[in-house]
Amino acid sequence: MQQIINFLIRYKIFLLYLFLLLISCIFTFQSHSYHQSKFLNSSNYITGSIYTFSDNITSYFGLREENEKLVEENKRLRDKLFNNLVLSPSLIDSTSVNYEVIRGRVINNSYADQRNYITINKGESDSIVQDMGVITDKGILGIVENTSDNFSTVQSILSDKSNINAKIKNSNHFGSLVWENTTDYNVVQLIDIPRLVPLTIGDTIVTGAMSSIFPENIPIGTIKRFDLDNSKSFYFIDVELFNDMTNIGTIYIIKNLNRKEVLELEAETEAND
């Protein structure tokens, strides 16, 4: 007994170090599986407030650019409106609405890590919950991961955990959008597209219909380069993003009103297997 106590006293610094290292490793690895740690994320009150404060100052420098973007988007929407590509408002009733859009702002953005997260200024009080899709006017951005009352963190598509259903525009060949070359923040990879699909450099990639998070046909990027993967039966496609991931201001959060129904149905089907 005496010896054990002596041992503990002599090595107390080392034991303390091991203990703290273990704690950090547990925090780090438990969330490698799927979700970010519940406690260690920047959606909490203090970090959110500090980032809002800093964003309030820095956002002034990009106001003109931000305006240009919004006018550009308005122009695109007006083009569609005048060409009758969308339904007239009288035809839209509440029963046919599947998606609801909430606007927000990025208050902290990262793109240089292996798993990048974006902090936004909308949270539970704006009815944001986990697994909502986040897009910008140009294309997809990520999926909501953690929420607090007024802030949320978004898992960026620039994350080695990210996996999003995507397809080639105007076809139904779909694959998974991942980020494998984790040093280039303008390029993501599309995998699992069969080799019989005709591809051309410059083809547009959009989100697929298999996801209950994003609506179909949200733009992602264009094909930059493609090659067969090791199995020689699927393509490995480099997709250049439409979004400039280094410069993101206004964002839209998409709420799928049918998501719950879809998930319940899928769970039921799996249970019956």
Binding site: I13, Y17, L20, I23, S24, S42
Partner: peptide, 30 residues
Amino acid sequence: IILCFFLGLCVDIFSDTLAINAAATVTIAY
């Protein structure tokens, strides 16, 4: 060592890096 652990953890919480900074900082503190 405890102080350094929290220093790393604070940076982690802000930059959404789980507890990577905490682990690295506690190592050099030791």
